[in-house]
Amino acid sequence: MIDIVGLSKARGGTRVLADVSLRAGEREVTAIVGPSGGGKSTLLRCLNGLEAFDAGAVTIGEHRMQPGPPPARVLERVRRDVGMVFQQFNLFPHLSVLENVALGPRVVSRLPRAEAHGMAEAQLARVGMAAFAAARPATLSGGQQQRVAIARALALGPRVMLFDEPTSALDPAMSAEVMETIVSLARGGQTMVVVTHDHAFARRAATQVVELVAGRITRTGPPAAVLGL
């Protein structure tokens, strides 16, 4: 499903990723852990082309990305198959919760409005946010916003979900509520890559853990092997 080979990237003369190779199969949950500034988020952002890389190759499903800025056509196809959830939620403040989730299906998949809304309602129900469909994002708690962001990414039916420190901006209670949502997705067989500092989550939900330090993979394997028991 995901095949990263020899990925390297430098930014302003500094090496951010050095010869990173990684494989993840379908239905696998990969947790990327490690200290801040180790290149975790950059690696994740290379997987859907938000950042270009200098060497190596990334294959997701049948899409293959080469070094340098990928052509727009490749990017649009990759991104339809790869959903992303950001640390800062990045919900669209000018749209209601329902419209946030329905925008992708409407604009990208070109579904009629009614159909897109129906699809969005189903995704909101999946993350327990159906009751807030008409609300504006700003009126929701951080945890609720992040669950809407998950529903928004799921609405396009991605084969892979990327999570970039999805709970770092949340207090422990809200963090737990978002983690429950992600764990239940994992149990449902969603392929995902999660950048996280939350080792408890990694132990509970990950099938493999990758530790990234200073742009290099230092350890990789099942949670118990990498993180200890």
Partner: peptide
């Protein structure tokens, strides 16, 4: 308009101009 808004839109698979039209410009 924060860059994250544009990134969230293109991460959904929108083109640059779709992201501008539906997300960045309205804000």
């Amino acid at each position: 308009v924060p860059l994250g808004q544009f990134e969230a839109a293109v991460a959904l698979g929108m083109t640059k101009w779709q992201a501008l039209r539906h997300v960045v410009v309205p804000q």
